[in-house]
């Protein structure tokens, strides 16, 4: 934290994650991606505005669509914000903005980071979660997230030409693989928490129970917003419970 030269960044054994995670270079890269998406948005809107009159679509409908999309995403965006803030201590702001806020999702990225940490013999947030472990987790999340972008870049033109995608040829496999993969990954990571300590085990059940409760309430009350906020609420209440269980 003192006066470090730029190239002598970090101490592999230190657990002060923020000293590395909030490095200015990472901030600049994160803000760069934000800028790129803003530019993309502007270019797309210009292209849509040019095409609309020819398909009998008045400008008013473009504005209405934009506004509808913006309003519809206020709730989900703020729900993502809540989850992102909860993960700040773990990953620092630039990594959270990029990996949780954009590109990936809290679910897949946290799972990836934990898998990465476990290959270093550590746990996210545990006593062995050093700057070095954080860095390996961050690099891995970024490469894995990059693969999604790379496959999108490579597959989209192919799919556009082919039209008949694998999804059309064999919908059964295509529906089964992601379901099985995601549920298996989250089951494995959840169950791996159970033996760590009594508090860990209780928290798994508390947070699972809270999510179940919120989803049930959302269904009974027909409250879509509650489904969006369920993850953020579950995390915050579980962490509050963790504080009391830990200090008790």
């Amino acid at each position: 934290m003192n006066t470090m030269p730029v190239l002598a960044l970090g101490d592999p054994m230190s657990t002060d994650i923020w000293a590395v995670a909030n490095n200015p270079v990472l901030w600049i890269c994160a803000l760069g991606v934000f800028t790129v998406i803003f530019v993309q948005t502007v270019l797309y809107m210009r292209a849509a505005r040019a095409a609309a009159p020819h398909v009998e679509m008045p400008k008013r409908e473009l504005t209405e669509s934009f506004r509808a999309g913006a309003v519809a995403s206020i709730g989900p965006s703020l729900a993502v914000v809540l989850v992102a803030i909860a993960l700040l201590a773990l990953f620092g702001t630039p990594a959270v903005l990029l990996r949780i806020g954009l590109v990936g999702s809290a679910q897949a990225e946290t799972a990836s980071a934990q898998i990465a940490a476990s290959t270093m013999g550590a746990d996210l947030g545990g006593s062995l979660y050093t700057q070095q472990v954080f860095a390996v987790a961050f690099i891995t999340m970024s490469l894995s997230g990059g693969m999604w972008m790379l496959t999108t870049l490579l597959l989209t033109p192919v799919l556009k030409k082919g039209g008949k995608s694998l999804a059309k040829k064999n919908p059964a496999v295509m529906a089964l693989i992601p379901t099985a993969a995601l549920i298996a990954a989250f089951s494995s990571l959840s169950i791996a928490e159970l033996p760590k300590s009594n508090v860990h085990a209780m928290l798994i059940f508390i947070s699972a129970g809270l999510m179940g409760l919120f989803l049930l309430l959302a269904k009974l009350l027909n409250a879509k917003w509650l489904r969006e906020w369920a993850l953020g609420f579950s995390i915050v209440i579980s962490l509050t419970a963790a504080y009391f269980l830990h200090t008790a």
């Binding site: 679910q107 099985a180 995601l182 549920i183 959840s190 369920a230 579980s238 962490l239 963790a242 504080y243």
Partner: peptide, 29 residues
């Protein structure tokens, strides 16, 4: 912050698992 960092993983993962199970609604997998 220390408590949050130590327990964020179980606090998140249990909820994520239930969310995935409920949204996918596939009993056998």
């Amino acid at each position: 912050i220390e408590v949050a960092r130590l327990y964020i993983l179980p606090s998140l993962m249990g909820a994520v698992l239930v969310q995935a199970i409920v949204s996918m609604k596939q009993l056998r997998p």
